[in-house]
Design a protein around this nucleic acid. Structure first.
Lengths: 278, 278
DNA sequence: CGACTGTCATCTGTCAACAGTTTGCGCCCG
DNA sequence: CGGGCGCAAACTGTTGACAGATGACAGTCG
């Protein structure tokens, strides 16, 4: 999180008094979009929650224009959904959508691994090996946050080494969408062990230069993550009636990408209550 | 060309009776975004061209606000790039980015084919077979547009049958980005024959229920498209110096996704000349 | 004659205000 | 006492206007 802010500031000026300097370089809309995205991904704005433009504007100290532009960008990016004259809501990802995203990530990871098996430099292999080692140590020390961070780094490195910038960005976006599914810490000891064993398998195949094996290992790893995800989740085993799965099942229309925008308004009469600001 | 002007005029002034009704349901921003996207993809707005907000606003008969929101969405979507206080430009896709997009599409298509091989219904297989037949007839009749349309339909059906809505949307977005690379009609007789033979191979594997073969066939097909694309293109064989490849090679910074925003402004002093409107 | 600097027009970024619509609440009627 | 109706408030959609910045052009000096 703070690394994001740091890199942004570092890219522009590198200083601390950056607030005014950043505004001179990046548009306010992009800043607002970045902030809202951070709020969403950090969980401060829960999935299904409604976005009040004016409230966000006053909260960020800007007018409604930049907020609107930012929300529109996030809508296009798939993080929020908007309906006319009603507002924007943080997108809710259904269970089967999450599973589909896992499949896409698997394909992307497999692609990167296969390519990396043919083009990896010794430095890259060493970097990956170091990350696997870090994860192993974090697992032994029972430090899930450290493991989680190293895990993210490992996958990012995989994509960075084995694929182009487009694939990297796509992978990141898919990861963000996955974050929308549900707030949950799914790191458990046995999961960490199993997951890191798969990491090691990926690394072995890459080091051996076996493209097909590397690809299979990468896909298996993401599939394993999907399986662990399914095991942790409660809604998937009962596809008809429970949790968010019902969202997708209830609407009868064909599988268009537009989303029923009134999913999570069930009980919350917070529209008026939250408007106390100003 | 003329189709562009016609549809543009129809969208702005009131081609159908529903123009006012549509505005009641869809936001103006989304309409503008759709229109600008169409302009870009149809080639009316060339790659690298600058987008004048006021000009677009008057042309579409709206204010600058919706135009700005639309452009921001398109920026997030990857079709345009924006720089502060300078404007937005239609994104230019470099040659290696196009190749990378081909790889991503191959992975997506392979995924859909593999899944479809296991879940295809007889109706779906029949629909795909009909499309292959249509393409074959279009090829024999030497009608590239018909072939092109059926080809698009075939791939869309593949994704629609074999993958979820997220993958379908992603595939479409990647296709749009690919359209940005260069305006060109790359359909040639031998290409059509080869391409459709690969379609038939995909269909055979799906009908046989062989997931791995279907996946391989799907990936091979997209790889073939990539190869044909490379053969048609002139810049790829000389990766150091020619055409758009130089864009990516020249800028020395690391492979970030942000784009040098001043590529195509080389000669055009049209900034003043084009401002005659109003 | 060339390079530099000052000026100006255009465009983008941002803001405040207006109009339309949806929604929640209270009231009246059956 | 329950249901339907009308009113009002809030919010979104859209517009117009203002300030800052960028780039180009012209004039001037070495």
């Amino acid at each position: 999180m703070e690394e994001t802010a740091a890199t942004t500031a570092g890219a522009s000026t590198g200083g601390a008094q950056s607030a005014l300097e950043i505004v001179r370089t990046r548009s306010l809309s992009s800043l607002v979009a970045q902030e809202i995205e951070r709020l969403i991904l950090s969980g401060a704005l829960a999935a299904g929650e409604r976005l009040n433009e004016q409230q966000l504007a006053t909260r960020l100290g800007v007018s409604r224009g930049p907020v609107r532009e930012a929300v529109r960008g996030l809508e296009r990016s798939g993080l929020v959904v908007a309906v006319r004259n009603q507002g924007s809501y943080v997108r809710q990802v259904s269970a089967d959508e999450a599973l589909e995203i896992y499949d896409l990530r698997a394909a992307l990871t497999g692609l990167a691994c296969a390519r990396l098996a043919e083009t990896a430099t010794p430095q890259q292999v060493a970097a990956l090996r170091a990350l696997v080692k870090r994860m192993d140590e974090a697992r032994k020390a029972d430090e899930p946050p450290a493991y989680y961070a190293a895990n993210l780094e490992f996958h990012a490195a995989l994509l960075a080494f084995g694929s182009g910038p487009r694939a990297r960005r796509l992978y990141e976006e898919l990861g963000n969408e996955l974050h929308l599914f549900r707030r949950r810490a799914l790191v458990q000891p046995e999961n960490m062990r199993e997951s890191n064993a798969e990491h090691a398998a990926i690394l072995r195949a890459i080091a051996a230069g076996d493209a097909t094996a590397a690809r299979a290992a990468g896909e298996t790893h993401i599939a394993g993550g999907k399986r662990r995800f399914q095991a942790t989740d409660t809604s998937t085993p009962h596809p008809g009636k429970s949790g968010q799965a019902a969202q997708k099942g209830d609407n009868g229309h064909d599988g268009q990408d537009d989303r029923p925008p009134r999913p999570a308004r069930g009980r919350l009469g917070a529209r008026r209550g939250a408007a106390r600001a100003r």
